[in-house]
Nucleic acid binder design. Structure first.
Length: 451
RNA sequence: GGGGGUAUAGUAUAGCCUGGUAGUACUACCGGCUCCAGACCGGUGGAGGGGGGUUCGAAUCCCUCUGCCCCCA
């Protein structure tokens, strides 16, 4: 995990470094249809394989968005950011799957499953309802009630080992094994929506903060290792498909010569459907070349091969896509953390408490009025401004006007705080009303196996 | 299977040997300063894992359970 220095005004370079370090891709802002506030403001700054999602969407094919919740503690603004993104994907046509990590909360935090359920419904789902997710296309399930995710975690565990966990998570000999199981079950959570019973093969995107990337890297690695067919760049241009022979599929894809030949005929058959005229299959060397294929062809090719793999009895799992958002600064200027209530605002926060928190929040103002008028404030480190930017001011022009006013010294820090408090009050009040009004919908969000 | 260590406030820790007011730092909260916050100054909260024993009195000594750490096999 990379520490993100909240004091730094050179935030963008930090995030550039993260993109480098984590091997992420920058957000292709120009290609995002109907960009949200988070996209426009660069809050969502990177992704992995988002192209899969965008391609599926532009072709009118199905795609999904996945997230999870730990049913402990209260929902706060940090959670809102993720749900806003989930809702955006839903508005773009995604189906939504939400995992309640009750097994994990039970094993690592000592909550009973009954408590988990209560917290999940009353604290989390109630807010999802209020934040406008569509119950028709949202499925919330409990890990404990969907055994397939545990089974998948078990199976996927074959593709990794303790050394990798040590490297990714810093686990050591003293690590409780419940913490070792959790990421595997989580991989099951992320991948299982692709199963035929849960919507079938389609790209799934997981919006997260960068601190969650290790989970996704693991999950992508695990999924990739189960694939029977590889798609790689070909030296002379185009793409090359090779067959990955392992214990599980040896008898199916690599028996005698006749079997191998038949497999390659099937690969060619699957690719023909995509309209390539030049398919160079070489069963003897175990390769199929597509000289004319381009980078953007990877996705349809991959999907065709996964479909073929499934028809042959393989798991046919597509690596999940992901997007990465910046973290909002904590109220006190440091990190926002649910274990430190003074650093964030809860979605059911009392308005007076909220106001108090803003009044106490770190500012980017100067020491005296005179200095402030002369030098202006620094919105990059000013909590009130950052909260308008991340959460409460949807209007870009209005936000920019406030920013200019603050930088110019026309708006004092105290004034900016009051503006933010007003906005936050309105939002929290509306959210609370919506929670009440729509409480009856909570049940409709639950998957059949969660009722 | 055997042996050793450890458990103190939200966090990090002192005190235990030699029983007698649980101390410190950060955090939190309140006040001052400040347009506000921070910094700074002043103040206020909050704690010995569970059970049992010894004792007038136990964080401290003993037993035990539980959690965590380590060593040997």
């Amino acid at each position: 995990m990379v520490d993100i220095d909240p004091w730094s005004s050179e935030v963008s370079t930090d995030y550039d470094r993260i993109i480098q370090q984590f091997g992420l891709e920058s957000m292709p802002f120009a290609e995002i249809p109907n960009p949200s506030m988070h996209h426009r403001r660069g809050i969502i700054f990177a992704h992995r394989d988002l192209g899969n999602i965008l391609q599926a969407q532009s072709r009118g094919e199905s795609f999904g968005v996945m997230t999870g919740l730990m049913p402990s503690g209260q929902m706060h603004l940090g959670h809102k950011m993720v749900i806003d993104q989930v809702r955006w994907f839903q508005e773009q046509g995604a189906d939504v799957t939400i995992a309640v990590a009750d097994l994990e909360a039970n094993a690592t935090r000592g909550y009973s499953l009954a408590e988990c359920r209560k917290v999940a419904l009353e604290e989390y789902v109630a807010n999802y309802v209020a934040m406008g997710l569509d119950p028709e296309r949202t499925n919330i399930y409990f890990q404990s009630m969907r055994p397939i995710v545990q089974r998948m975690g078990f199976t996927l565990g074959k593709r990794t080992n303790l050394s990798e966990f040590e490297a990714i998570y810093g686990f050591k000999g003293d690590t409780n094994l419940a913490h070792v199981q959790a990421p595997l079950v989580q991989a099951g959570d992320i991948l299982h929506p692709q199963l035929d019973e849960y919507g079938g093969l389609r790209p799934i995107v997981v919006p997260v903060g960068v601190d969650q990337d290790p989970h996704l890297r693991l999950c992508r690695g695990l999924a990739g290792k189960t694939n029977w067919f590889n798609v790689n760049d070909r030296k002379n241009g185009g793409l090359r498909i090779t067959v990955s022979i392992m214990d599980e599929n040896q008898s199916i894809v690599a028996g005698d010569k006749a079997t191998t030949k038949a497999v390659f005929e099937q690969i060619v058959g699957a690719l023909k459907g995509l309209g390539y005229s030049d398919i160079m299959a070489d069963a003897k060397h175990g390769i199929v070349d597509l000289p004319a294929a381009t980078k953007s062809d990877r996705y349809p090719i991959r999907m065709a091969l996964l479909t073929l793999e499934r028809s042959m009895g393989g798991p046919g799992l597509l690596q999940p896509s992901s997007t990465y958002h910046r973290f909002a600064i904590g109220m006190t200027g440091g990190k926002m953390s649910s274990s430190m209530p003074e650093t964030t605002i809860f979605l059911n926060e009392d308005l007076k408490k909220m106001e108090k928190k803003f009044k106490r929040s770190f500012s980017g103002g100067q020491s005296t009025v005179e200095e402030h008028r002369r030098l202006g404030g620094n919105p990059d480190i000013d909590v009130a401004f950052q909260y308008l930017k991340f959460f409460f001011e949807e209007d870009d022009a209005a936000l920019e006007e406030i920013r200019r006013g603050y930088v110019a010294g026309d708006i004092l820090s105290g004034e900016l705080k009051m503006m933010t408090v007003d906005k936050a009050s309105t939002w929290l009040t509306e959210l609370s009303e919506l929670r009440e009004q729509n409480a009856h919908l909570v049940d409709e969000f639950l998957a059949d196996d969660a009722r």
